[in-house]
Design a protein around this nucleic acid. Structure first.
Length: 599
RNA sequence: GCGCCCUUAGCUCAGUCGGAUAGAGCAACAGCCUUCUAAGCUGUGGGUCGGUGGUUCGAAUCCACCAGGGCGCGCCA
């Protein structure tokens, strides 16, 4: 748990307001203080931090913002850590920390190590983050990997901010797609045992045709052969009664597909705490229970939906269905829970699944979904509201489509063109570090172009390289320091005791300001559910460090290691070590390797 | 037709949940450098924030309408 200087200063600003406005209605004051913020300044000329306290309080207090700002500044100026506090602009109070207060954060960082930035705003609240949840009918596709990276990084951000996170994958193993998987696997099995059955015959025999013809099921067919011999076929090696084989084939195919998915995701550094099975939920009766509960609450009825305006399906006919009163909970239309054959819709099972997550103790549910599921969001939110009695919110992070670009041209993701389609293929060309960081350099709900050339480039244009390079430079300096001063003297613990007064260059101070913004950044990213902010922060932090490094090319007094200046060297080494620490802390959140050297 | 997301410099994108003169990289232009710290460095130009209204001390941010792009729209998951 580390100190957030901005949060601390905010407490002082709020206190100042309370002292200055003793007659203000407490309820109004609370409203005002909720809007008070202390932020890093964009322009160093404005000091280290600024607060809007005077402006948000001006109206309720009936005083001009500048007057309030004067009074707040006068009070904040008395704080020992504040060097100056001045009203500015329309009513900001600009604060400059005393050099000691600013520099004192460096040993704080060094002692905290990578845990610097760990926060408590999560307060142990249980958050369930569900992501990927791709059908277990084939290997991971490139389209899945953005959600995987976003979900994984978001989880890490939340953990760092103090939330109790469960990372979860929902296996859709109950529907018709899995049945189709079983039939396709059976086809590969028949091939493995040398059956004369043709794909056409199988396509005709399977209830929904032969859907998955990719070669990735060949190993499944082989494994079935190894386990069952020819016993799943007729004596003539023809198609046997599905009752004899379907369950076996289904089980093994699912097992192997899930193993493959886990392996692919593992290569990307994406892991989960819990895998939940739709089929298991059905078998446990959880779905019936959840539906019965809605029924008991009077939230279900038999009714007929209107066709959507402007786009009536060809085969539309009015039909009575079991409907959930989603409109009572903010959705546009009530939603069906049962198909005409009496089985549950995907939505019905998903209600049970989300109910299950709540029953397991989640206080907040987050689903990371592809943009093609956008139309699904409002009904699921309605369902969760109904199922939890409004206690548990469902939040949805939508990930837009990724266009993979090469040589400035969109990459066609077709097998016929010989270009890759799977995550595994992608990872053979681009490192997991580059994939992850690049994916996180965009807001998730914005469409993005993934430039392969840029992701692989070993130049400044590549943000991953740029950030890893900054860390490598830090480590390089520290290795040299260990040579020069001895290993122990270059350790964080030793550097934490350095006299930091020599750090007074504008660029050194700019770097320190960036470092101390880390705890606040984590809080913001966690509350906004926006892991991409971490990537941008690291990019900017790396930029400040590179700038200092480059400045040392011209101004030799800014170089980190100087034989004739022991005190200055120790101070600068402390800054370098602190920078490396925060870079590592951030890269850990993103799941990107903090490399020791560029090779 | 309806709903949701998006539109910011030539390009790719940020903009800290309403704050100060809207930022970064690439590209362009102009210098420097070819190593003393490592894949070059420094500086400059570039914007009616898609458009029009509105809300207020203050709007890229919130609201309404319009334009363009994406996604979705009863028994697919």
């Amino acid at each position: 748990m580390t100190e957030n200087l901005f949060a601390g200063m905010r407490d002082h600003a709020v206190q100042a307001l309370a002292d200055l406005l003793p007659d203000l209605d407490p309820a109004i004051l609370a409203q005002v203080t909720a809007r008070v913020e202390v932020t890093p300044t964009r322009d160093p000329a404005h000091g280290d931090m600024a607060t809007n306290a005077a402006m948000v309080a001006a109206k309720p207090a009936g005083k001009p913002p500048r007057v309030l700002a004067e009074a707040i500044a006068a009070r904040l100026a008395l704080l020992p850590d504040v060097a100056s506090a001045e009203p500015a602009g329309p009513g900001f109070v600009n604060l400059r920390l005393s050099p000691g207060a600013l520099l004192a954060q460096i040993p704080v960082i060094l002692r905290a190590g990578e845990s610097y930035g760990d926060g408590h705003i999560g307060d142990g609240i249980a958050v369930n983050v569900e992501y990927v949840s791709a059908n277990p009918t084939g290997p991971m596709h490139i389209g899945h990997c953005r959600g995987a990276v976003v979900g994984d990084a978001l989880s890490s951000v939340l953990v760092k901010a103090g939330f109790a996170v469960t990372r979860e994958y929902y296996i859709n193993d109950a529907g018709g797609q899995v049945q189709a998987l079983a039939w396709a696997s059976y086809w590969r099995y028949l091939e493995a045992i040398g059956s004369p059955v043709t794909p056409e015959e199988l396509d005709a025999a399977a209830p929904s045709g032969l859907q998955y013809r990719g070669e990735y099921l060949i190993p499944v067919g082989q494994a079935l052969y190894e386990r069952y011999g020819a016993s799943l076929a007729t004596p003539e090696l023809g198609i046997a009664d599905p009752a004899l084989w379907l369950a076996h084939v289904r089980e093994l195919a699912l097992e192997m597909m899930i193993a493959e998915i886990r392996e692919d995701l593992g290569r990307l550094g994406v892991t989960f705490d819990v895998f939940s099975s739709e089929q298991a939920l059905l078998e446990s009766g959880a779905t019936d229970t959840a539906i019965a509960k809605l029924q008991a609450g009077g939230l279900l009825y038999e009714g007929v939906l209107e066709p959507p305006r402007g786009k009536t399906p060809d085969d539309w006919e009015p039909r009575p269905q079991t409907l959930f009163r989603a409109t009572d909970f903010g959705d546009d239309v009530d939603r069906p829970l049962r198909k005409s054959d009496g089985s549950n819709t995907y939505f019905a099972n998903d209600i049970a699944y989300h109910t299950d997550k709540i029953a397991r103790g989640a206080d907040i549910l987050i689903d990371v979904l592809g943009a093609d599921h956008g139309g699904y969001v409002s009904r699921m939110k309605a369902a969760v509201k109904a199922a939890s009695g409004g206690r548990v919110p469902l939040e949805v992070v939508l990930c837009q489509i990724v266009h993979v670009m090469r040589n400035g041209q969109p990459l066609r993701m077709s097998k016929r063109a010989g270009t890759f389609v799977t995550l595994r293929d992608l990872l053979e060309e681009v490192s997991a570090d580059a994939v992850r960081f690049t994916m996180l350099m965009r807001k998730s709900d914005a469409q993005m172009e993934f430039d392969l050339d840029q992701a692989m480039a070993q130049t400044r244009e590549n943000p991953v390289f740029y950030v890893q390079y900054a860390h490598a430079r830090c480590r390089s300096v520290l290795r040299a320091a260990a040579e020069m001063l001895g290993a122990e003297a270059a350790e964080p613990a030793a550097l934490a005791t350095a006299d930091l007064a020599p750090l007074d260059d504008a660029q050194e101070l700019a770097l320190i300001r960036r470092l101390i913004a880390w705890p606040r950044l984590i809080e913001g990213a966690a509350l906004a559910r926006e892991p991409h902010r971490v990537a941008f922060y690291l990019y900017e932090l790396a930029g400040e460090f590179h700038m200092l490094w480059n400045k040392g090319r011209e101004d030799t007094t800014l170089r980190f290691l100087q034989a004739e200046d022991g005190e200055g060297t120790r101070a600068r080494l402390a800054l370098v070590a602190a920078t490396a620490t925060v870079l590592r802390s951030g890269l850990a959140v993103l799941g990107v390797t903090p490399v020791e050297e560029m090779r």
